[in-house]
């Protein structure tokens, strides 16, 4: 992570839009994101020792403890999501625990950002842009999945689901963030989200 005071989040030029009783968009800037890869057993032992998390072993699964959540990415890859500012400490402890074991541990915090999509209409709005089945029986609270939103790759994480509607977090690449933001705002027009003009005023083209 960068400690430069001039650090600027990818969506710093956007303000939260919408209301929580229908649909709400906001950015969660500067969260820690660590990619860890390696043998599930060797890496799993180190992660359990350091973070107290049993690494999830199947698609869509997540596991969390102590403010850190591990998202399954592939059979040998996980994404650790931490609160802002904690990724350096977690990375240092994991590096020590993984010493001598074949692994890869990379800080992606500056590469991605998180967009939250919450409210009773969140599922319907996302379904306009994502081909995946978002029904609660296919994606339940606490599950996460990598997929395409329009043309951007996103990690879709359903943090909670309840009476107030689902709360999704979309982990998106820095350069895709404004594209995804504008498309989500456009998808939410019917629930009262204001139109968002893309940076550079280039019209969005989501293709066929």
């Amino acid at each position: 992570m960068s400690t430069d005071p001039r650090r600027r989040s990818p969506l710093a030029h956007r303000q939260p839009i919408g209301t929580a009783d229908t649909l709400h968009l906001s950015e969660l800037p500067f969260w820690g994101l660590l990619s860890v890869r390696g043998d599930p057993v060797a890496v799993g032992l180190a992660v359990r020792e350091v973070l107290g998390i049993d690494l999830p072993g199947a698609v869509k699964a997540t596991a969390g403890a102590g403010g850190v959540t591990a998202l399954w990415q592939s059979p040998d890859e996980w994404l650790l999501v931490t609160e802002p500012g904690r990724e350096g400490e977690v990375q240092a402890r994991l590096t020590d625990a993984l010493a001598g074991r074949h692994h890869q541990l990379v800080d992606l915090s500056d590469y991605d950002t998180i967009i939250t999509v919450a409210g009773p209409a969140a599922r319907a709005a996302l379904a306009k842009l994502i081909a995946l089945d978002l029904h609660p029986r296919a994606l339940a609270a606490g599950q996460a999945v990598s997929t395409l939103l329009a043309k951007a790759t996103v990690r879709l994480w359903l943090v909670q689901d309840g009476e107030a509607g689902p709360a999704f977090r979309l982990i998106v690449r820095r350069s895709h963030a404004d594209y995804v933001w504008c498309l989500l705002a456009d998808a939410g027009r019917q629930w009262g989200l204001p139109p968002q003009e893309p940076i550079g005023r280039v019209p969005l083209d989501i293709g066929a």
């Binding site: 698609v59 990415q73 592939s74 059979p75 890859e77 999945v145 990598s146 997929t147 395409l148 790759t153």
Partner: peptide, 15 residues
């Protein structure tokens, strides 16, 4: 007919 081919799950697990 039946053809063996390779695919990569580029936007998912990347395997």
């Amino acid at each position: 007919g039946v053809f063996a081919e390779r695919w990569v799950h580029a936007a998912g697990c990347r395997k």
